[in-house]
Structure formats: C-alpha cells, structure tokens
C-alpha cells in the first residue's frame, strides 16, 4: 500500500470514526431515555448538536491562556482520532508496526490531558476544580488500564504490535477466556469507564456539582471538539479492548463484541450515582489494584 492510499484511507476511517461515534452516542442517549420512561432524542441528535455548535460564536475568556485554550480541544480530538485509525489499520489491513499498542496507549492519554489543560487554562474556579479532578482521576484510572494491557503484552510473548496480539490469540486461545485475561478485562473495563468519563466517574464535568467543570468556559466549535473527542473515544476504547482481549479477524464478531461492551457501559451508567473523588480514587487504588496483582499472579493460567 503506498503512502497516498494510507492517507486517503485514514481520512475515510476518521470520518467513519466520527460518524459512528456520534451515532453510538445517539443510541446511548436513546437507550438512557427509554430506561427513564422517556421517548428521548432522535438518533441523529448528536450530528445536529455538532453542526449547531460549529455555527455558534466561540468566545474566549479574557483571563484564559489563548494558545492552550484553543489547542487543548483540538489536540485531544486528534489524539483520539489517531489512536482509532491505528487500531483500525492493524485490524483491517494488517498494517502494524512494533510498539503501536504503546503509541495507542499514549495517544489515548491525550484527550484527558487536553481536558485538564483546557480547564486549567480557562481561568475559572469551577473549571480548575474540574481539571484538578480530571487530573486525579486520570492518574487513578490510567494505571490499571495500562497495567491490564501490559499483561496482554506479556501474555503475547512481549509483542507490542496490535496485529500480532490479535493474531497470536488464534493459536494460544482468546485472552478473555483465560483466568488472568478475564480479570484483566474486568480491570480494563472499569479503567475505560474512567477514561470515557461517564457516570459514576464523570466528576470532571459533573453538571450538577461544578456546572460543566473543565468545559465551563468552552463554547462553540471548541466545545464541539470535546464532544467529538468523547464520541470517537466511545468507539476507540472498546475497540482496543476487543483487539486485546477477544482478538478475532471477523467483522461481525467485532460488532457483536462491541455491542456487548457498549451495553455494559450503559447499564453501569444508568444504575449508579456519581462517586465522590476520594471514593473513586479509593475504588481504583484499592479494589482494582488487587485485581491487577491477581491477574499478574495468575498470568500463566
């Protein structure tokens, strides 16, 4: 595949990621509404929201650091997008390089970093509380998430390429069905809830506590970028879980597995209140850490 093709394909897949993310968020809103005895918005609602936001005025607060304020949302958006494109390339075309899993892990930390920087640059007390919470939360949930992926790397003979990891599961059996893999999946699942920032870990935005938190000062298209980031992450993070824990080369299986993870996310979201920051940290540092250690102990099983 030549370089032009790669560029073209990445653009196509980026658009797919955005569209699919917005769609799946729409479905999420619809299901939430049905659970609450409501009709809920139409499935295309999130597309309209983004178009509307792009048409709105973007105001930059006077006290904000202009450069960081503008670039934070763009960087988080691009980070999420790039991670998604890399995963899709290695899954669909087998274009993979050594260490692309590490790259994806790095790229997936960008959205939260963007949120933290954007919140703290906007010069607003509520926004800085939001970003300080985001900082604490990302420290807590990133470690178990990465640790569970490290376990996968260890299980796949220290291979750090997504393609290899998926491929290897053909021979050695699916990771999810081993004891350690199952525990690690559980850990990674909670980590990804933290990464996606949905209830019970939506502390950084907590609408009813700190009024949108880190996003408080954002408006117009910059807010739109954060919303898009969230939409893309909703596809990318489960996709990464699928690749490292279920690993098959069947599109239909991927879609099914995605839907299962998606449903789990929705169930967790709608049956829990928001946790306090210290409770969330305690959850990650105590419960989840023990599980990680357990998964490493049972690595061979």
């Amino acid at each position: 595949m030549n370089i032009l093709n790669v560029v073209l394909l990445s653009i196509v897949w980026s658009i797919f990621l955005i569209a699919a993310g917005l769609l799946i968020l729409g479905v999420e809103r619809k299901i939430t509404a049905r659970l609450q005895w409501r009709v809920g918005p139409p499935w295309w609602q999130n597309f309209t929201d983004i178009i509307k936001l792009s048409a709105k005025e973007t105001s930059i607060p006077e006290r904000a650091n202009r450069f960081i304020f503008i670039f934070a949302p763009i960087v988080s958006f691009l980070g999420a997008l790039a991670a998604g494109v890399i995963i899709i390339f290695s899954l669909l075309y087998g274009i993979s390089f050594r260490g692309d899993l590490i790259t994806v892990i790095f790229l997936l930390t960008l959205p939260y970093s963007g949120l933290i920087l954007g919140g703290s640059s906007s010069g607003n007390a509520l926004a800085s509380v939001g970003s300080s919470r985001a900082l604490k939360l990302t420290l807590a949930c990133e470690l178990p998430f990465i640790a569970s992926l490290v376990l996968i790397i260890l299980k796949s003979n220290l291979s750090t390429s997504i393609y290899n990891i998926v491929n290897m599961q053909k021979n050695t059996g699916i990771n999810f069905f081993s004891v350690s893999g199952f525990i690690a999946f559980f850990v990674a699942f909670w980590g990804s809830i933290g990464k996606l920032g949905i209830v019970p870990f939506d502390l950084a935005e907590a609408d009813t506590e700190i009024a949108g938190g880190a996003l408080f000062e954002y408006s117009g298209i910059l807010l739109g970028f954060f919303k898009l980031t969230k939409a893309v992450l909703f596809i990318v993070v489960p996709l990464l879980l699928i690749a490292s824990f279920f690993g098959s080369f069947n599109v239909l299986a991927w879609i099914l597995e995605y839907l299962v993870i998606f449903l789990l996310l929705i169930i967790v979201k709608n049956t829990n209140p928001r946790l306090r920051i210290d409770q969330s940290l305690r959850f990650f540092w105590k419960v989840i850490i023990i599980l990680i250690i357990a998964s490493f102990v049972f690595m061979k099983i």
């Binding site: 609450q36 609408d207 009813t208 506590e209 709608n270 928001r274």
Partner: peptide, 16 residues
C-alpha cells in the same frame, strides 16, 4: 437529590 448525585434515573422515575 438523585439529580445532584448524577443519578438521573432516580430523578426521572420519581418525577414520573
């Protein structure tokens, strides 16, 4: 109270 805790399901059900 449910709404403040980010527990929107409770909010909606009770208001129903």
């Amino acid at each position: 109270a449910g709404h403040f805790l980010g527990y929107n399901t409770v909010f909606m059900w009770v208001w129903k």
